[in-house]
C-alpha cells in the first residue's frame, strides 16, 4: 500500500511538473512593456514554488513508503517536535513569501500609481452587455461629456456611450467597436461600465482591469509589438459573458494616425 501510494503521488507530481516545465500550455507571447518583468516574476515564482512542491510531494511519497508499519519496524521516534526546526522553517517561509511579494511592487506601482507619459494616447474603454466601445478624444484632446440618460446601447456608436452632442468637444470624439493603438507609445486608459461590472483582459498585453459602473478607472500601458490581440471579458456579466469579445490592433504610429483621421472624416 505504501509503495502504491508513493507511486501515485510521485506520478502526479512529475506529470504535473512536466507540463509546467515543458510550457505545453503557457502564457501567450507578450506584447507590452510590462511583459519582461511579469514573465520574469512568473518564472521566478515557478522555480521557487516548484522546488517546494517537488520537495514536499516527493518527500511525502518517500515517507509513506519508508515508514510503513512492519513487524520488524524499529520503535517510533517518540517526539513532540523540534522548536529549532520550527523556527528555521517559519523564518525561511516568511522570507521567501514576503520577499517575492515585495519584488513585484515596481511594476504595479508604475501602471497604477504613477501618471501616464505626457504624450500618451488617451482612450476611453466602455463595457456593456455584451460589447466593448472605445472612444478617442480627437484633435482637441478632450473627452466630451457623457450622460447616463443619453445611453442607448442598441443604437451603438456615440449613443451607446451616451455622448452629449451638445458639448462642443463632442464633435471630434470618435467612438469605435475595435481598438487601435500605436506601438511603443504609452496609452492612457480610462475604464467605465454602463450596466454591470466587466473586465478588460488582453492576455498578450499582460493587462487586466475591471470596468465598474460608477467609477472611472485610470490605467496606462505600453504595447511594444505590432499585431492583433484578443480582448476577453474577465468578469461575469450575464448570459453573453462568453462572447463579450473584442480586438486590439497595435499598429505603427503612421497607420494609427491614418486610421484615426479616416474615422474623423467619417464623422464629419
Amino acid at each position: 500500500m505504501g509503495l502504491a501510494l508513493m507511486a501515485l503521488i510521485w506520478l502526479i507530481t512529475l506529470v504535473s511538473t512536466y507540463f509546467f516545465v515543458a510550457k505545453t500550455w503557457w502564457l501567450p507571447v507578450g506584447a507590452s512593456a510590462a511583459t519582461g518583468f511579469i514573465d520574469g516574476q512568473f518564472a521566478l515564482t515557478f522555480v521557487l514554488m516548484g522546488i517546494v512542491f517537488l520537495a514536499a510531494q516527493l518527500g511525502l511519497g518517500y515517507i509513506v513508503w519508508k515508514y510503513k508499519e512492519t513487524p520488524t519496524s524499529p520503535p517510533v521516534a517518540y517526539s513532540h517536535g523540534n522548536t529549532k526546526l520550527e523556527i528555521l522553517w517559519t523564518a525561511l517561509t516568511a522570507i521567501l513569501f514576503i520577499g517575492l511579494n515585495l519584488m513585484g511592487r515596481p511594476v504595479w506601482a508604475h501602471e497604477r500609481l504613477e501618471p501616464a507619459d505626457a504624450d500618451a494616447v488617451k482612450v476611453e474603454v466602455t463595457g456593456m452587455q455584451f460589447a466593448w466601445y472605445f472612444r478617442y478624444p480627437g484633435p482637441d484632446g478632450t473627452f466630451a461629456k457623457t450622460s447616463v440618460k443619453l445611453m442607448d446601447p442598441s443604437a451603438g456608436g456615440d449613443a451607446a456611450v451616451g455622448l452629449d452632442t451638445n458639448d462642443p468637444s463632442a464633435k471630434d470624439d470618435v467612438v469605435t467597436g475595435t481598438m487601435y493603438l500605436p506601438v511603443n507609445r504609452e496609452v492612457d486608459l480610462s475604464l467605465r461600465a454602463v450596466d454591470v461590472i466587466h473586465s478588460f483582459f488582453v492576455p498578450q498585453l499582460r493587462f487586466k482591469q475591471d470596468a465598474v459602473p460608477g467609477l472611472n478607472i485610470h490605467m496606462h500601458l505600453k504595447p511594444t509589438v505590432i499585431g492583433d490581440y484578443e480582448i476577453a471579458c474577465a468578469e461575469l456579466c450575464g448570459l453573453g459573458h462568453y462572447k463579450m469579445h473584442g480586438m486590439v490592433h497595435v499598429v505603427s504610429q503612421e497607420d494609427f494616425d491614418k486610421w484615426l483621421a479616416a474615422r474623423e472624416a467619417e464623422k464629419q
Binding site: 502564457l27 510590462a34 516574476q41 515564482t45 514554488m49 513569501f97 513585484g104 493587462f207 487586466k208 474577465a234
Partner: peptide, 19 residues
C-alpha cells in the same frame, strides 16, 4: 497552497485573476 503565492502577487494576478 503553492498556487497561493502566485495569486497573492498583484502583478501576477493581473494575468491570473478570473482565469
Amino acid at each position: 497552497g503553492l498556487s497561493g503565492p502566485f495569486l497573492a502577487q498583484p502583478v501576477l494576478d493581473i494575468q491570473l485573476h478570473d482565469t
